[in-house]
Design a protein around this nucleic acid. Sequence first.
DNA 1: ATGGATTTGTCCGTATGTATG
DNA 2: TCATACATACGGACAAATCCA
Lengths: 462, 462
Amino acid sequence: MTYDYILLDTGSSVPLYQQLYLAVKNAIEAGHLAKGEKLPSIRKLAGDLKLSCTTVEAAYQQLCVEGYLTARPQRGYFVLSAPKSEALPLRPAAIRRPEQAQKIRYNFGSDCVDTSYIDLKIWQRHIREVLNRQEIIASYGDHQGEWELREALSAYSYGARGVIASPEQIVIGAGTQPLLSILCGLLRGADERIALEEPGFLQAEQIFSDCGLQVLRLPADDSGIRMDALRESGVKQVFVSPSNRIQTGTGIPVSRRYELLDWARETGGILVEDDYNGELRYNARPIPAMQGMDRAQTVVYIGSFSKLLLPSVRIGYMVLPERLLELYQTRVARYNQTASKTEQLALSRYIREGQLERQLRRLRKRYAAKSSALIQALKNAFGSHTEILLQETPLCVNLRLHTSLPGSTLCEIAARNGVRVMPEKGVSSGVVLGFAGIPLNDIEPAVQRLKEAWGDVVSRNH
Amino acid sequence: MTYDYILLDTGSSVPLYQQLYLAVKNAIEAGHLAKGEKLPSIRKLAGDLKLSCTTVEAAYQQLCVEGYLTARPQRGYFVLSAPKSEALPLRPAAIRRPEQAQKIRYNFGSDCVDTSYIDLKIWQRHIREVLNRQEIIASYGDHQGEWELREALSAYSYGARGVIASPEQIVIGAGTQPLLSILCGLLRGADERIALEEPGFLQAEQIFSDCGLQVLRLPADDSGIRMDALRESGVKQVFVSPSNRIQTGTGIPVSRRYELLDWARETGGILVEDDYNGELRYNARPIPAMQGMDRAQTVVYIGSFSKLLLPSVRIGYMVLPERLLELYQTRVARYNQTASKTEQLALSRYIREGQLERQLRRLRKRYAAKSSALIQALKNAFGSHTEILLQETPLCVNLRLHTSLPGSTLCEIAARNGVRVMPEKGVSSGVVLGFAGIPLNDIEPAVQRLKEAWGDVVSRNH
DNA sequence: ATGGATTTGTCCGTATGTATG
DNA sequence: TCATACATACGGACAAATCCA
């Protein structure tokens, strides 16, 4: 299977077959070639290393004589001896795949998706169709993203979120992070800082700091970033997730959105609007994206399909306002597209056929059902001992127990009982129950098991 | 098809149906809803906006009365009138897909791939197999990249390039750029500069500058970056493409590689080794990657499959040395994987089955045949008037004509005759002929046509 | 299961440079 | 100076084993 690339020096006084012999010997002794492993055939290695067969054969012969290899006629040469010195296992064979965590029966992790809702057949069909068109997958894609997909997204984002974007303004990427990377490059120069609401979105902050932007955490009130703090800071760029504020459960209200837009227009600032799961409102009346309310070209809109499509499909998009678009277009050639071309085209068909819309409606209903079922179950189980807070767009419920134990301990206890929940950051005894991934019928028994697991702890402290 | 998201204010004195009426009217007048377009059904819109059907119906009625809409019984409401004012086409309907350049018969562009070499069937089979496993595509992937693929790459990169890497050290990404982004984050702090050989690789430089690293272009001699300049600069990080130096056609020789490794070991520096197309040597004897020659954990190896796999598949990988790996592992959770999970798993099977190895051999033979055919044809056509320089790993030939015309003009003339070639940067009358994308049998006639196109120009000046 | 194409170790002929007598 | 011997390296031929459709 493996064929070595070995460094040979024609100018050396050491004959080539000796050099080859030494290289293979070292590889075996260092453990890079395991016992029993097949070596490349004489012809293959000779071809690869631009040597004649005799040279390779001579090296193999010597290795056979010294007991490193054995030749099985018409089958190949195989490594015979084990590594000589265990001292330097540069590529340790003992490394194994990190084992899975304990068995989980009910999963309230926020990184899960209930797979029963996804119409896999249709997605597979689209992928297959795209895959069958050789001229498509055998050619490079558009750096900015496939035009068809950008067209589809132009229509979709207007319909679903009120985003006003021509295909030219849309940049596709493999999720939010590569898009933010590009964006940081476009923003660079105006201001080395970017403001966001505390506590921020780790995935975004990492990119900002990687790009050398100083992350400025501004104080917030119930409605989001406080405008006085924003104006005082003098910062030129703000990152907001208007519909997805994790700690409060509600999004930024309309009034504050207009204030932010006013701020941007007046100061010439840029609003980066991360519309993570913006489509997924099901209880409250939907609020369109700020981008569509913007009349001064100040908003960069970022959308994705994390909880909407298959989790394995990582496609996001970004809508650039005029001034950033011009700068971007001078650089398009310097950015390679990160999203899979096949999946881009499959998605564009999926959207154009109205499948995404259909799925969105389905999901809204399911999530509505699941959220109310979960809240009902929690009220029944913990009613008097807890504070229950529904987070609509993040698809989770914050549960704050009246106990002295920290959230992390509660999660450990739950995990030992086969239920996966996450601790809530910044709150003493809070846990987060994501309901995206758990089937509707599992909610009731899962909460029951949580009650049993925590029963002592919670009541003892009350 | 489209269903609007419209901002409604329950607190307002304006009745909801009026607000809805105004919003749709504005959308029509602004041109967001084209003539003849179908509006969402009353029931759907009511559901989306959390309104009652009567409210929506009232708004639609008013729009019908005023001639904006027309109701077709049992079919829905349709936009009747055209945009009122053409003044503010925020989403201009007239925008069309940017048209293709002039018809090209023979393409020597460096961004092309000869699709006839790729065994599409096998790739499709693997994709299909992965796609059929619901548990795979309906779950999130490993942030660092699928373990299976990392295992496969560990074996492959050792065999093909002598890279010594355990799966833990390997980070997958959607091409080189996202990997470099992450790397910049890991390098940040040590030195705000990164050195590279002039002229650099635009795609990489863009990322460095986006990440706020100062790009330091160091002078080079025939062997690559000059060591004295490197030591004098005091820089801590160097980016090199040892096997892919575009201007000279040859890679960095072994002696300089050892000097670079010595420099890194002595100064504690980091060598970023971009092994772009490193596998694709076919004439000269292969030189293994520097990473495998490194004994001091100073090299970051970056590999990709641009010219090896389907161009639409963008998967690359990076091998981190110990000290960077530790830092990375504290951050894994903060980086989402950018490469498609489906394609990752398909690729891992492709590699494990030995397909990649087979394809590599096939490609080497084909590229060898094409390069010699091209050089022969060029010699026959332009023999006395030119300098011909084979660039092995970049898969192209530099052709320097003895004429006063600049390369860009030569390319224009060629393009008018249906042959696409690129100007060679930094050389007066040089053009670059990439032979990766052109079929073997097209080479002879393509060069003939070039000769006819340039015939006057070249001979007139000679 | 089965026949044909491919792969493989083995063997052989030859060319070149160097040391020896 | 020439003939010989040896080591090194190249290219090709053969039959057995293996793989693939």
